[in-house]
Design a protein around this nucleic acid. Structure first.
Lengths: 257, 257
DNA sequence: CGGGAAGTTGATATCGATCAACTCCCGTGG
DNA sequence: CCACGGGAGTTGATCGATATCAACTTCCCG
């Protein structure tokens, strides 16, 4: 398995050998973290930055009544809190969903990196923009997508993002969230998650067991939920390469599958 | 009325005279834009950055079926697309809701500013983090807050944000969205907006007419919707002085209908 | 083998969507 | 000055998706 950070940033910027080496060095020393462990707590100032190298974590906020919304799934190659040290206090929690390997980075190192390696800085900047784009897509789904499509959309996203960092097989990947956690992503009840999952299974859109997601027919799943992968900004470099090469680029690469 | 950009950034960083002058110069030349005018279109690369100096704009995305979600209210002092020029294409629209005065800034100017004035760069960085925090709060509301509180929460936010940039009176400010636009912010139907608005009016929590919002008793409205202004990060520099700005109201003033 | 977390099922209640009018406001042109 | 027209706002009736409540089962792990 390749270095997920390098794989991820490669989607935004063409990294040279030197830059790859720098990123490798940065991610050399990982710290293990057990599942269900809080990495960052709301209301507390953050000290180190955290980068997921393996496993899955969640970012969420709580309501006084106990309601919870998960804002983001943090997969290998994702920074948990690249930005947070500029605000006086964190407003959300970060917690591992599975056993993870995490890199803890003092902010000074990142600051230095940003100053001395502007191309890498740009790549990090790019990564945070993609995260925001994903957040907006989730928001759109929460307000406007029916529940079954919302869930299907999430599964499409997870599969593609896992692939993008070299995790998972051709048509399957880890999907380590419990139904209750899924509920907190989708903004519905865990009971309702259960029923919608059954519906998706009955339609043979997904197979989900033992925390493994299998998608027998990705185009069909994508069609079901109007999934357009553009918001993940995965093809940025590939698209550019392709357009200076042979074929004319299609408007939306989604439909060509 | 002070310069809204300076007022806004002052909440994040203590600006010196020199920095204020630089920001003043940056915002000197505004372009008028009529209400309901599209500033940025999804799918197109962005050329200039846009900064709102007066008026209100909205950022939104569309679904194939015509559904729309407004992701952000862009008030005076807000950048529309500070980040966007790093991604290969924009994934959302920006449109004025009222007549606006807008500053158009070539990306090169911002890049230069960032390189030569690291404190201002930091302030801009801070502003985008606050925007993200607001986005997350909206997301939490969409999934977990009942509609009436969601709407009340939005009104609290608008009032505070307008105050933060020197717009609006003690207990009132402009609220230029139509009920249909409000619906696209809150993720509900315009019909339902109408009914919930009536409920809030019946409870004397708000007075809204002629696109003017008046909150007779802000603490009561805040209590109603569990509003915690922390996510706006307004008090960062002067928390004690400012975050408890709304004192317990005189019962007499609550009678003014 | 036992216990707790995760997942499943059924019955009922409710919030908000949908459909269909209708009114109000305001600006515009005759 | 009035008539018209369109957008915004308002109202009522009905329907459906999802929450809620209350068991129950299965799985996993010590």
């Amino acid at each position: 398995m390749g270095n997920p950070l390098i794989l991820k940033l490669s989607h935004g910027i063409d990294l040279d050998e030197d830059e790859r080496a720098a990123l490798s060095a940065l991610t050399e020393r990982t710290v293990p973290s057990a599942a269900r462990h809080v990495i960052m707590r709301a209301g507390e100032p953050s000290v180190n930055l955290h980068l997921i190298m393996s496993g899955v974590a969640i970012r969420y906020r709580l309501l006084p009544d106990g309601g919870r919304q998960i804002f983001a799934l943090l997969l290998p190659g994702d920074f948990c809190d690249l930005q947070a040290h500029l605000l006086d206090h964190s407003d959300h929690y970060i917690e591992t969903a599975t056993d993870c390997a995490i890199v803890e980075i003092p902010p000074a190192i990142v600051d230095d990196l940003v100053l001395t390696r502007s191309r890498l800085a740009r790549a990090l900047w790019w990564a945070t923009l993609v995260d925001e784009s994903v957040t907006r897509e989730w928001m759109l789904g929460l307000s406007r997508r029916p529940t079954d499509k919302r869930m299907a959309h999430l599964f499409c996203e997870i599969l593609l993002r896992m692939h993008a960092v070299g995790r998972g097989e051709r048509d399957s990947c880890a999907m380590p969230l419990t139904q209750a956690q899924l509920a907190d992503v989708l903004g519905i009840t865990n009971i309702h998650v259960n029923r919608v999952l059954q519906e998706l299974r009955d339609r043979d859109l997904i197979v989900l067991k033992k925390r493994q997601l299998l998608v027998p027919d990705l185009p069909r799943l994508q069609a079901f939920c109007d999934f357009d992968p553009g918001y993940l900004h995965l093809g940025q470099r590939a698209r550019a390469a392709e357009s200076r090469g042979a074929r004319a680029p299609q408007p939306s690469s989604a439909r060509t599958l």
